[in-house]
């Protein structure tokens, strides 16, 4: 088995916040920012997913560069 780079484990965070956070988010019965808190929680997790995948993508690209197997430059920039 190859070792999974540590930063890639970040990808599980938003998923865990949705799957593990919903039981707690569902206990808030108030509206927050005009939205039901549960909905706001999920929207936050979706945004966090996007940000996390962007971070992992750039860290992967950096790791690939330092390993010498650099992906083509234009696509790498588009990740940021």
């Amino acid at each position: 088995m190859r070792r999974v780079p540590l930063h890639r484990w970040l990808a599980v965070v938003p998923g865990l916040l949705i799957l593990g956070g919903v039981p707690f988010a569902n206990r808030v019965h108030r509206l927050v920012l005009g939205l039901p808190f549960l909905l706001l929680w999920i929207v936050g997790c979706v945004l966090l997913t996007s940000a996390t995948m962007a971070l992992i993508g750039s860290l992967d690209a950096k790791a690939a560069r330092s390993a010498g197997a650099s992906p083509d430059p234009p696509d790498r920039d588009a990740l940021r």
Partner: peptide, 20 residues
């Protein structure tokens, strides 16, 4: 009502999985 929010939740996890 609230159960409909699942539609918003699964896509994000699926895209995170898709990366790998």
């Amino acid at each position: 009502g609230a159960p409909a929010f699942y539609i918003l939740g699964y896509g994000a996890i699926a895209y995170a999985i898709s990366y790998f």
